[in-house]
Amino acid sequence: MMDIKALAPNAAVMDFLLTRRSRPVRSLKAPVPTRDELAPILTAAARTPDHKMLVPWRFIVLERPALQRLAPLVKTHGTAAGVDAQKVENISGFFGNANLVVAVVCAYKDCDDFPRIEQDLSAGAVCMAMLNAAQASGWGANWLTGFTAFHKGFLAEGLGIEGDDYVAGYIHIGSEGATPQDRRRPDIDAITDWVSS
């Protein structure tokens, strides 16, 4: 007979999860994690639920020179696509003013026996895990998307992403310039149904 043991509670982790708060992108500054410091964050993010172990995601680490190269491409592709000028300016700034961004790419894998959305959900879970891992490591972090996550022209020219793949999230990581106040959170009772029979 198998000996079943309960996991020991980890109050520190639970407290972190109950109080975590994304940091505004504009407040993130240098220094940023080194490659050695980023490696465990990426490793933690990759320990994400992944049905059939397809690994339907990959990482593109964008350092400051790459981000500054991408900023004008945001304007070129955004303007051509008719994206609101203020949104284009904001997103261009998110690239051009950043010091380190990890693009989590949803990289679809062929699998006929379950829907593709499971790969999308896994890529989203990677983004959340990376956000938490960065903050648990003492860095400020934020998860953004915007039109550049899905615009095929920008993805191909800027990041070399082809086909149906897209960016599930741009995870901005850096030193905290400011700690924001918490925001209003959902009323758990209002969004929870208990089904007992």
Rank of each mutant, 00 (worst) to 15 (best):
A133Y: 06
V32G: 03
R20C: 02
P180E: 08
V83T: 05
A30R: 14
D15T: 14
V102I: 13
G160S: 06
A190G: 13
D165L: 05
L38P: 02
D36I: 07
F114G: 09
M53S: 14
P180Y: 05
G96R: 10
T34N: 08
P186Y: 08
G140I: 03
V25G: 07
K109N: 09
K75D: 15
A45Y: 03
E37I: 04
W57A: 01
T192R: 15
V104S: 05
A136W: 04
A178P: 01
R116T: 12
G169K: 03
G146W: 00
Q181W: 06
D36W: 04
G177L: 06
Y166I: 10
D182M: 12
T192C: 15
A80M: 14
V105M: 03
Q135D: 04
A168D: 00
C106L: 04
F147M: 00
G177V: 01
T48K: 03
G174T: 10
L28Q: 01
A85Y: 07
L100N: 04
T19R: 15
Q135V: 09
P40M: 01
P115K: 13
T192M: 15
W139Y: 09
L155D: 00
L70M: 08
S196E: 11
L121P: 03
A103R: 08
R69L: 14
A80L: 14
L70C: 01
E118R: 12
S27A: 14
D120A: 13
